[in-house]
Design a protein around this nucleic acid. Structure first.
Lengths: 157, 157
DNA sequence: TCTTATAATAAGCGTTGCTTACTATTGATG
DNA sequence: CATCAATAGTAAGCAACGCTTATTATAAGA
């Protein structure tokens, strides 16, 4: 084992894991021929979980700016994976929902995600993994509360 | 508490935490007038830990491509925070080291990093935090081994 | 009515990181 | 020693992710 070059602080390690994970996910999905980036997959998945949902609501729950989400939705809509329909109760708003064509892709993404998660934590006690998840969620909440626009009312994910 | 919109899988939570952390770090450092991005700070810190070191060695240990690192070093060198000197034992290579001017900035970065870490994990048992760190490091190792260029010999960070 | 607030979007940018192709040097092999 | 492959660094260019600011349409309160 090489000498530790920098402190393995939580911050650095999390950054590393996030980056490596995204790269590996990308490798696996593109290997299977799914033409989605990890970010697109995440949005598609979230829409499928949220059912028809307003963009603003989805953005807030995903912790993204409305504009950021809008761009993702553009791409996913172009590929025919989801649709935007007018919200009958507010003509400004649009409801996003997945189209049937997306279902097999979503299933595949789920499968790949679960497999990656399993591979990545193969050497780790499941109970520890669950604790890790809990702690990370707590950290996320802390960080969300630190954001300048938070007092406005933003709170969870 | 809003209904969970997507599964809070490890993957998503880690991605969120990494992003939020970087944003918060950025907010704090730019608030203090340090003109460095989180990535630049990370490189500067790593150089300060590694002493005079070859770029290729540093890149490998940081888990970055040589080119990626080179670009960061360009910017840090331009700001006079570190220097590249010829390696006497190999005229192709350069040794990177921090310049004295960088010391106060490094100290400030360390301080801010430690504070952020503390704030972010305020509600978490220190022992759990340490476990979390260990588990994440294990996950990082798993992920590093999955990379296609890994068999070549790349291994740790 | 008029003003303010909200939903979505257009336009444009910054950070992080990659790949591919190139130059200069090293070191091994015939 | 001549040659040729490997290595250290860099130039150029691109992709993914996410943000801010400004704009348009609609809603809702004073």
């Amino acid at each position: 084992m090489p000498p530790e070059i920098y402190h393995n602080t939580i911050s650095f390690v999390i950054t590393d894991v996030a980056r490596l994970m995204r790269a590996e996910f990308d490798r696996r999905t593109s290997g299977v021929g799914i033409g989605l980036t990890p970010g697109e997959a995440r949005v598609l998945f979230s829409v499928s979980k949220a059912g028809p949902v307003r963009q603003a609501v989805l953005a807030e729950r995903m912790g993204l700016e409305a504009m950021t989400l809008s761009t993702y939705l553009d791409r996913l809509e172009e590929r025919g994976l989801l649709s935007r329909t007018a919200d009958p109760s507010d003509r400004r708003a649009k409801l996003v929902s997945v189209r049937p064509e997306a279902e097999p892709i979503i299933q595949e993404i789920l499968r790949i995600g679960a497999q990656l998660r399993a591979d990545m934590s193969a050497t780790i006690d499941p109970q520890k993994m669950e604790q890790l998840r809990q702690s990370l969620m707590q950290m996320r909440n802390c960080l969300i509360e630190m954001r300048p626009e938070c007092p406005k009312g933003t709170s969870k994910a």
